[in-house]
Design a protein around this nucleic acid. Sequence first.
DNA 1: GGTCATGTGGGCGGACTGTACAGCTCACGA
DNA 2: TCGTGAGCTGTACAGTCCGCCCACATGACC
Lengths: 166, 166
Amino acid sequence: MTDLDALDVDLLAALREHPRAGALELSRLLQVARGTVQARVDRLEREGVITGYGPDVDLAAAGFGVHAFVTLEIAQGALDAVADELAAHPAVLEAYATTGASDVLCRLAASSHEDLQRTLLELNRSGVVARSTSVVVLSEVVAPRTTPLLRSLPREAPRRAPAYRD
Amino acid sequence: MTDLDALDVDLLAALREHPRAGALELSRLLQVARGTVQARVDRLEREGVITGYGPDVDLAAAGFGVHAFVTLEIAQGALDAVADELAAHPAVLEAYATTGASDVLCRLAASSHEDLQRTLLELNRSGVVARSTSVVVLSEVVAPRTTPLLRSLPREAPRRAPAYRD
DNA sequence: GGTCATGTGGGCGGACTGTACAGCTCACGA
DNA sequence: TCGTGAGCTGTACAGTCCGCCCACATGACC
């Protein structure tokens, strides 16, 4: 676990807002030297804070307008089997083991309600799932984001970056 | 809504796997001309299929190791108020209005269990939330992904791309 | 005081981007 | 059957950026 300083957070935000920007343009935006930007990005990638770079795909625009969240109750100790099952199904966008009455929460996408129903039936038919409940997404209330969270922590100023004044 | 052909899907997958690749390298990977890659990417961005380009941040690596999903029951017609409330809270990563017994499903991140508890209390205290249930994420079963879904549909071959085979 | 890590500013060659243009080929409609 | 237009290819050129150097400055730490 790394702790980020204010420059790191600004760098991540700048990367998100200016996807096409190279190191040189970022250095201009952040008022630091190009080498600093490159070193910071390298460090963030090396330490696993940056895991990739999109592209972020709007599934609705790509023809998958129906989204749903499904909770699964599974047989004791069958988590691995369920993980394989879910990973093998393309409609599963992500899945997490959770506390609570259910064991797994996963998010599905489909091109239509019929398509979604088909997916749900396939998952239920697989045997490892004891019970499932599903809710369909009606609208996006808060779009996916991380910057506000990263900014919410009090950040120390960069240890050394004379040219960087926020 | 756009329908993507096989080249579009391969292009999106290549972009994800080779984040640093420019148009020229992508054109080599996909065995098409550079101009084609540029034209396709432009089209995908213009039509809203590509909405952005990361960086994808591993929140656990950034100090926010605790994730939770929360379902909210809200007062009749208070969705806008809840949306504002949620948007104002940095710990809210995303939120969706859903069918089912609850009205809103949202995903939270926090630096610790105490931090999470504090967030939950703040959301409950706000008044617009009638009831809430929360589950904590224990582990990632399927990592976020979209490529399998995009590949799952039978895609027509690109209408014209003589150099593009497979 | 010395050392280390980090940031700054600069320079260099090679590589890439943006843009333009001509030619090819297929789909479509007159 | 024959244009026409859209899409892809290949090429070219100028401008820009990247990766990699270097010397030097500045705090933190020993």
